[in-house]
Design a protein around this nucleic acid. Structure first.
Lengths: 335, 335
DNA sequence: CGGCGCCATTGAATCGTTTCACGTGGGGTC
DNA sequence: GACCCCACGTGAAACGATTCAATGGCGCCG
């Protein structure tokens, strides 16, 4: 008894396979009595639909994939959370893939997802290297929605936050508090979000004649934040404030500074990005640039289903949200 | 041009489909020149394998599903992280599903995973209601590994942490600090982990004649922690310490107490469970009962592949890890 | 020169569904 | 009583890949 198929059910209920299929997919088209007989057989045999066969016929699966840079980053899980309800409602299934900021992993996952003929794809690409493959997916009628990523030249829908502006807000906030030199922690700049945030920051610093130290050999997690602190303190004239490309880095930076006995915000201010829930709960509550995380996910899913239902006549939409500055204790001191 | 299939490739390269298949699956069995011709055709047409068809034939997919209670809980993402490398190496694909502690969602997801004929399943079940379905999966030769969940009566492999003992450790720690009455926050007790942790805690409290207030209408997240504080403070004689069933609740409790102006740990101590990374970084660094998160995931994946390779002769293994008490500032005061 | 074996390739069967063009029989209408 | 329509069911043809027995060609040995 490897697997029981519709044929077995049909035999057991003394009907044709076509009828079994109808019981499953259009119960109304089947007479009451027959339907019951088939359902009984299904239950008795413990029959379970074979989705591969179904998909093969349909040419498409019901899976919506979400490819994120880091599942362990609450920012992304919040995005996923935002998307789930919509996908559920539409009868889809969410598949979360973690590229781990690794171009190779990402490529492999995209390849597999393409082979699986997923219904659609929400993705925060690691960098631009996947553009070609994504275009191909789209050409094969697999809608691709870019998440947290400006439209740029790409032939896809997207939801994003104005990260350049977010960078400006953070920098401006720090300068207004009297800091004259700040550090930017987060890399590599091949990641568009990082680059945008840095761009906004740089713009403001240069405009104000403030110093800017850029630390880009820093991975986007807590460990990266601790390393950033080491690098910063090794500088000839360490800045008095750090702008971290995300909140995980900021938390790491906070830990690093605290371990070195440096007071936050008195001796060094910190501002993060994303405003994950843990930012507010940190040892020193973190100032941050808030992104509407769940809304990003929700909107992305919405765009996906819009694109699917609109079909070929669809024109891509690029939704941009504005970030919001949230000032907390980690930047609470005027110099 | 909906999709290009092997047939198209075969025609373009002027060979039979069988040969195309061979080029893809056993390149050595094909003559050099033919192989190149086929590969060229594949590249030119942009052919992508159809995994549904492949699976249909194979009777099985390459997907390893991980069903967790809450993707937004870092505990689970760390478990996923632990499992990923092994699955990758084995040529599998990780699919993360979020049951959201909802029995209905879980059931639906299991149904879908069964239809998809997943390669195997790592799951932290919401409660016992899924036992029957899980048994059926196992009977259909889909290995099921229970994660963070004692073996019990279940016919599956499992990895778990001794939660009863963890509960004891937490309670003992609090009593040793002089607390005479403690609150337990986390529910519902239909979730086995919660129940075990409470059991250990109760055992110690009763043994020592200490008071125990059980707050089980508390969901396992930050919001739940804030609510728990409200409930606790409404008691006639509020305890002087809270043991939270996980760290998210503990973080919420910390927020709740702080908002009420109650000092942690001086006026109320807190201890959590899991020791997620954010626990150490909290406003008041949280004491916690550490679980070997990544190792749970890694071991679970290992058990899965062992079971697959051992085949029918396999006997289930139940691996139990011991938790570890991590004392930090949130319980740093002797009464 | 005939026969043997090997290698590369072919073609057809198969996996389990869905779908659709066709029966078939019964009931209602005129 | 002729006719049509409906409601139910049927059976076979896809879907796209894998697999395996069969085939054909070729070189080599005797």
């Amino acid at each position: 008894m490897t697997t029981t198929s519709m044929k077995d059910v049909a035999r057991a209920a003394d009907v044709s396979v076509g009828t079994v299929s109808n019981v499953l997919n259009r119960p109304d088209a089947v007479a009451e009595e027959t339907r019951r007989r088939v359902q009984a057989a299904i239950a008795r045999l413990g029959y379970v639909r074979n989705d591969s066969a179904r998909q093969l016929r349909a040419g498409r699966s019901r899976n919506v994939a979400i490819v994120v840079l880091d599942v362990a980053n609450p920012f992304f899980t919040d995005v996923v959370r935002g998307a789930e309800p919509l996908v559920d409602t539409a009868g889809g299934v969410v598949t979360v893939c973690d590229s781990g900021e690794d171009v190779g992993r990402e490529a492999k996952q995209l390849e597999i997802l393409e082979e699986q003929r997923v219904l659609g794809l929400l993705i925060t690409p690691v960098d631009n290297s996947s553009a070609e493959r994504l275009a191909r997916l789209a050409a094969h009628e697999i809608p691709v929605i870019l998440v947290d990523r400006g439209a740029g030249l790409h032939p896809h829908c997207s939801v994003a936050v104005d990260d350049v502006h977010g960078g400006r807000m953070a920098a401006r906030h720090l300068l207004e508090l009297g800091h004259e030199s700040i550090a930017f922690a987060g890399g590599p700049t091949s990641i568009p979000q990082v680059d945008d945030r840095l761009t906004g920051c740089r713009e403001v610093c240069e405009g104000a004649g403030a110093g800017l130290e850029v630390l880009t050999s820093v991975s986007l997690n807590v460990t990266g934040g601790r390393e950033a602190v080491e690098q910063m303190l090794a500088l000839p004239r360490p800045p008095t404030a750090v702008f971290c490309a995300n909140d995980l880095i900021a938390l790491g930076a906070l830990q690093g500074l605290t371990m070195r006995g440096i007071k936050v915000p008195e001796e060094c201010a910190i501002i993060g990005y994303d405003d994950i829930d843990f930012a507010a709960a940190a040892a020193v509550p973190l100032s941050s640039v808030r992104q509407p995380r769940a809304q990003l996910g929700r909107t992305a899913a919405q765009l996906l289903f819009d694109e699917i239902s609109e079909g070929p006549g669809h024109t891509h939409r690029n939704v941009v949200f504005q970030p919001e500055l949230v000032a907390r204790a980690s930047t609470a001191v005027n110099l």
